[in-house]
Amino acid sequence: MSESVGVDDLIELDYRKTDKGQEISETNSAKPDLCIQHVSKSFQSKNGSVYVLEDINLEINQGEFVCLVGPSGCGKTTLMNIVAGLEKADSGEVWVNGRRILGAGPDRVVIFQEAALFPWLNVIKNVEFGLKLKGVSSSKRRTIALEYLKMVHLTKFQKSHIHELSGGMKQRVAIARALAMNPGMLLMDEPFSALDAQTRWILHYELQNIWMKTKKTILFVTHNIREAVCLADRIFILSTSPGKIKKEFSIDLPRPRDDNDVNVAEYSTRIMKELKAEIDKVVKCEMDADSCVECDIKCTTVEPVKTDIGGGI
């Protein structure tokens, strides 16, 4: 791990629009860790092909925290699965750390919306799972697992069964399980969207602290703009059908940020404004063509949301 990169360096790395991650690496070890090049994906359905992703291009630097934001159904999970290697793109390539992705691997662990913990194992054995696959000796993996359980403040629950944990605790175990494998990159697919606001707020704080401590590259998917602003160095906005990268924003705020921070709210409002058109499009798409009256109502109800953007798109 590149210990030389301080937290501040990372935050102050302004966004550079380079095609090949221009030699930033000389002075700083920030080099592109993840390269998504011309990725397209469609699914076959009864009414023909559905184009879900179209020509996605992304570069994420090592140690960067990037959020992908888009309305539900725009293909965020699909893109995540392609990066994870769980699904194949129709065209295009994904490169991680200089190597082309051909399948799933423990160098990019996914954290899913449902924690996906294994009920036949207790908490600590869940955290040890990946290490056991790697063939780490049992005493060593116990030590590592405990270290990460400590990081997510769950040492007390190491012997608990999974069903005894709350939703937020489950996600923290999932994060510990992913970190224990020491992957270069974490892929997080709406990991907090099933949680209540309070828990989410706490986890935003914890995740930022973990990120600052571990310097992992994080690709975080969400449909919630405020969550993205709270967490990300850079935000990519995906438009819907087909999913395309529509815009990107750099967030230049000190960390750890707070969901309710004024600056976070201000950034969210700004992004929200720029997305108004896209939101209207989604709303129109999802409503029947004949229910125009309803559509108008919906559109006007979207507007006042500006003052309360946290709710997502």
Binding site: A104, A116, G130, L133, A178
Partner: peptide, 15 residues
């Protein structure tokens, strides 16, 4: 989901 989670943690074949 279990299988996908395990795969991203490096589980393959007989494991």
């Amino acid at each position: 989901l279990y299988i996908r989670a395990a795969k991203t943690m490096g589980a393959k074949k007989w494991k």
